[in-house]
């Protein structure tokens, strides 16, 4: 474990806690894409099912359990508990256009042609683009609640922090994971526009608003 990865994981953890806090305190899931959240459940379930047969560490195990359970809980909050506050008419990105290509990519690019390894590759590819319905929604509405932007910033920072972690591991352990690295670069790049507005507006105390 190095600090980049630790802070990356903590940032990921923080993003989910911020999202839960937003939903609970405003009693609303306005501005949150259900499709993106559903894709995250798919990502976590596909990647972390190994927690039942591969023991790594207590840290690794607890994080996996937390990510799977919290993401399912968020779906419950959106679909059942605060259902009236979710507006599917602005959450229009076609998620199947993301899932299909990721299945194909996972079948081609994987470290071993076995079910768990293909599933792992799939989860890495899907994670890299899972934020698109959310960003698309943001683009459509042109503005976001500040708390939602903090959620997105923490989520974007997580994969960005994994990049120095991979560089560090390349030099200290000699390992390189090209699938995760390429997908991680794509994932981080998707946040560039968002981060620009976040740093120039939200962190200066202004509202998150996209130029018309």
């Amino acid at each position: 474990m190095n600090l980049f990865r630790l802070f990356g994981d903590l940032s990921h953890l923080a993003s989910i806690l911020i999202l839960l806090h937003k939903i609970q305190t405003t009693r609303s899931c306005r501005g949150i894409s259900f499709k993106t959240q559903a894709l995250y459940v798919t990502v976590f379930v596909a990647r972390y099912l190994d927690l039942f047969y591969d023991w790594v560490s207590l840290y690794n195990f607890s994080m996996k359990v937390f990510f799977i359970s919290s993401s399912i809980y968020i779906l419950y909050l959106m679909k059942v508990r605060f259902r009236p506050t979710h507006d599917p008419s602005i959450d229009t990105f076609r998620a199947e256009y993301l899932v299909g290509p990721c299945v194909v990519l996972a079948l081609i690019f994987n470290y071993k042609f076995t079910f768990p390894e293909v599933l792992w590759s799939f989860s890495i590819f899907l994670e890299s683009v899972a934020i698109l319905p959310q960003l698309f929604m943001l683009q459509r509405t042109g503005e976001a609640e500040t708390i939602t932007t903090h959620y997105l910033a923490a989520l974007g920072a997580y994969r960005a922090l994994y990049i120095p972690n991979w560089i560090y591991r390349y030099f200290s352990e000699g390992v390189v994971d090209p699938i995760a690295v390429i997908a991680g670069l794509v994932q981080t790049a998707l946040y560039v526009d968002f981060f620009y507005v976040y740093f120039t507006k939200v962190l200066q105390g202004q509202k998150f608003e996209l130029p018309a």
Partner: peptide, 10 residues
């Protein structure tokens, strides 16, 4: 270097 995925990453 070796290529592959470190199993300890999340």
């Amino acid at each position: 270097h070796t290529e592959g995925r470190p199993k300890d990453e999340l």
